[in-house]
Amino acid sequence: MLGRLTEGLSARTLILLTLLLAVLLAAPFFASDYLLTVLILILYFAYVGQAWNIMMGFAGHLSLGHALYVGLGAYTAAALYVHYGIGPWIGLLVAIPIAALAGAFIGYLAFRFKVGGVYFAILTIAFAEFARVGFDHLAWTKGSSGLFLPVAQYSKNDLWHLRGQPVMFYYVLLVAVVAAFIGCRALLQSRIGYFWLAIREDEEAARSAGIDTFRYKMIAVVISAAMTSFAGVIYAFYYNNLFPEQVFHISRSIEIILGPIVGGVGTLFGPILGAFVLTGLAESLTEGLHAIGIDIPGAKQVFYGICLLFVIMALPDGVWPWVKRRLGLSERAP
């Protein structure tokens, strides 16, 4: 089992990955409360970025509506908890099929009627927007006035009900990020992964090579949606409040895709590195601007935008391919 996991990885890569994991595992013991919340955010974006990357980076279909799957996961688990006291892990068993079904429905519509490229992206925005407006009027989830989970001061962490301190969420997300990384690597090296890349590169040529492109695109959208919904469940139990206007908003979907784009679309480590770079950048800008006494509203956003622009111009393939070369990791797996 372990042999298969590490197959194709150079010793150097393994050492660095182990070191990184050790640092992340130990981080809560040294990090301040503030730093811990930043790390939680980073792990959250690393995870959803990984899920989004399956659709875009592997199968070549741009989704600009992944907030839909986050929201469906969040609302399903939260509503089941609020109404019936059903815990998040059981709720997850309902949330995942719902998000997967939504993904399958959008995928079916798009792929059956050969909606591709930007039009596919627009379709994904449309469904996220439907959900945003629809959930505003859904009484069961308290509509636009918001769904709230009961909050109390927890002296100990209840993992089964996801009630507890940030450090618990940190470790849950860390496990999710590691699992997503391993899962995506296994997928990419499997038959499905090869077919996804072929579809991404040239769909017509893929079909001529015998690939049922409809089927493999459907698999991509369903896996990506299902994975993303798990992040939604965590989101709901971490923030304890859900508003359609926030959860399903297009800016949420954009946030999800920035990490993998900056890190390197289609790479396995890109979404993780991208999340660190972006969230780290945003937080250090906040701190930095505060330190030098610039308090103009919007200044942070402007600097953030400029930095992003610079990163994308300097490293159009993402930061990870560059870092990878720097670290001398030339193993063949992306």
């Binding site: 499997s190 090869y194 072929a198 590169e201």
Partner: peptide, 29 residues
Amino acid sequence: RTFQIVRPFPALSVEDNVIVGALMKRRDV
């Protein structure tokens, strides 16, 4: 079939291009 205007999968290695074809009749990578 081949295409008149060649269309290999550009970002993939030569090996991976051929593996994609070979996977049609084989489940195991």
